[in-house]
Computed example of a mutant assay.
Amino acid sequence: MIKIYRTDNRSIHEEDKIQEGVWIQMIHPTREEAMQVAEELDIDIDDIMAALDEEESSRIELEPGYTLILVDIPTVEVRHDKRAYTTIPLGIILLQNMIITVCTEDTPILHRFVKGRVKEFSTKKKMRFVYQILFRAASLYQAYLRVLDKRRIEIEERIEGDTEDVDLMALHELESTLVYFATSLRANGVVLDRLTRYKRLEQYPEDQELLDDVIIENKQAIEMTSIYRDIINSTRELLSSVIDSRLNNVMKYLTSITIVMAIPTVISGLYGMNVNAGGMPFASTLHGFGIICIITLLICILALWLLRKKKML
């Protein structure tokens, strides 16, 4: 899908054709749509299609007549029937008099620009637009990181209650997401560092301040990712220890019960042997069976008391 936008008098509207000062938004374009734009604007089609490859890494490429900026942005996906987060590439192509964005999804980062919710947004000020996109991406990373931390807190609060193995899997998924975020944020940081050195990209004086803000936000997101990874790792270790401890308690309880139950089994086994009844205590007594049962019960109670005293039960 291809849409063309242009800002005039601080308001954005959609255009029917490509012209100077427009923003061309390409959302999961087909090969034919990419070829059409590439031929009309003299762009390598591989540079347009690069953002559609999930394995593409963040980078900047200076080509004759245009500049390709490829960064990773956060997005929502459904994993194991649950809401999860991952990263996808976003391609930004800067031409002399227009800008092109290419992405596999209608990301909320660009959706705010379409709705005119970003202050001082202009399709004619290309570098400011790029920095605003990167600033929104870093802010969205931080927002999703806070959501991930809330999920960790929810799992941590259940540790004292009904903790299950599924919580360990949930923590593992959170940790995997943070790995994706950390990798993408570091790669984006390299792109931002290179943007500070390129003189070819025309900038307004206030754009440099915005770039500094983007770099700070990106570094803060990287720091948050590192902190949350450490916390989640500690939570996972705590959860594993709690589960192991509960399993040990169950095994200790079952072992104690087995010991106690072995007492009447041994006594009844001895009395079941085919030997002379005269040698067996209470064998010839009128109430011998009841006496033996009472003695067995007392021995079991004594064993239970000893086990409880030794904190084995």
Rank of each mutant, 00 (worst) to 15 (best):
289 F>S: 06
76 V>Y: 00
21 G>M: 04
172 H>A: 13
144 Y>N: 10
38 A>V: 06
189 G>W: 04
16 D>Q: 12
71 V>P: 01
129 F>P: 02
204 Y>P: 01
201 L>R: 02
227 I>P: 01
41 L>D: 06
77 E>M: 12
194 R>P: 03
6 R>M: 14
201 L>G: 01
89 P>D: 10
140 L>T: 11
35 M>F: 10
99 I>E: 03
198 Y>Q: 14
5 Y>L: 15
301 I>H: 00
25 Q>H: 15
146 R>Y: 08
242 V>Q: 05
261 M>R: 01
234 S>I: 05
134 L>N: 04
67 T>M: 10
186 R>V: 05
32 E>D: 14
109 I>V: 15
182 A>N: 13
151 R>V: 10
29 P>T: 09
311 K>C: 05
174 L>S: 08
49 M>V: 11
252 K>C: 09
200 R>L: 14
49 M>C: 08
179 V>T: 15
186 R>D: 08
1 M>D: 06
240 S>M: 13
123 T>N: 05
291 I>W: 06
305 W>C: 13
296 T>G: 04
146 R>M: 09
128 R>C: 03
34 A>G: 10
222 I>S: 07
245 S>F: 09
155 I>C: 00
150 K>L: 11
170 A>W: 01
139 S>D: 15
65 G>Y: 05
21 G>T: 04
206 E>Y: 03
196 T>Q: 11
95 L>N: 10
239 L>W: 00
297 L>P: 00
72 D>Q: 13
289 F>H: 08
293 C>K: 06
269 G>C: 07
40 E>M: 12
212 D>C: 01
295 I>K: 01
119 K>W: 03
192 L>V: 02
163 T>A: 14
224 M>F: 12
33 E>Q: 14
25 Q>P: 03
75 T>N: 09
213 D>E: 12
17 K>N: 12
232 I>F: 09
75 T>K: 08
134 L>S: 05
267 I>H: 04
2 I>A: 10
170 A>E: 13
191 V>Q: 03
192 L>G: 01
312 M>D: 02
297 L>N: 02
244 D>K: 05
289 F>Y: 15
155 I>S: 03
129 F>G: 05
291 I>D: 00
217 E>D: 07
275 V>R: 06
84 A>G: 09
285 T>K: 08
305 W>V: 15
258 T>N: 09
197 R>W: 00
159 I>W: 02
283 A>W: 09
309 K>P: 00
216 I>W: 00
276 N>M: 11
207 D>W: 01
233 N>I: 02
152 R>I: 14
133 I>G: 07
136 R>G: 10
224 M>G: 05
131 Y>S: 03
92 I>H: 02
102 V>G: 06
41 L>C: 08
165 D>Q: 11
301 I>K: 02
259 I>M: 09
55 E>T: 15
98 M>Q: 15
56 E>P: 08
236 R>P: 02
243 I>S: 03
89 P>V: 11
126 K>D: 04
177 T>N: 13
253 Y>V: 13
125 K>H: 13
235 T>M: 01
176 S>D: 15
168 L>P: 00
127 M>E: 11
214 V>M: 03
42 D>K: 13
276 N>E: 14
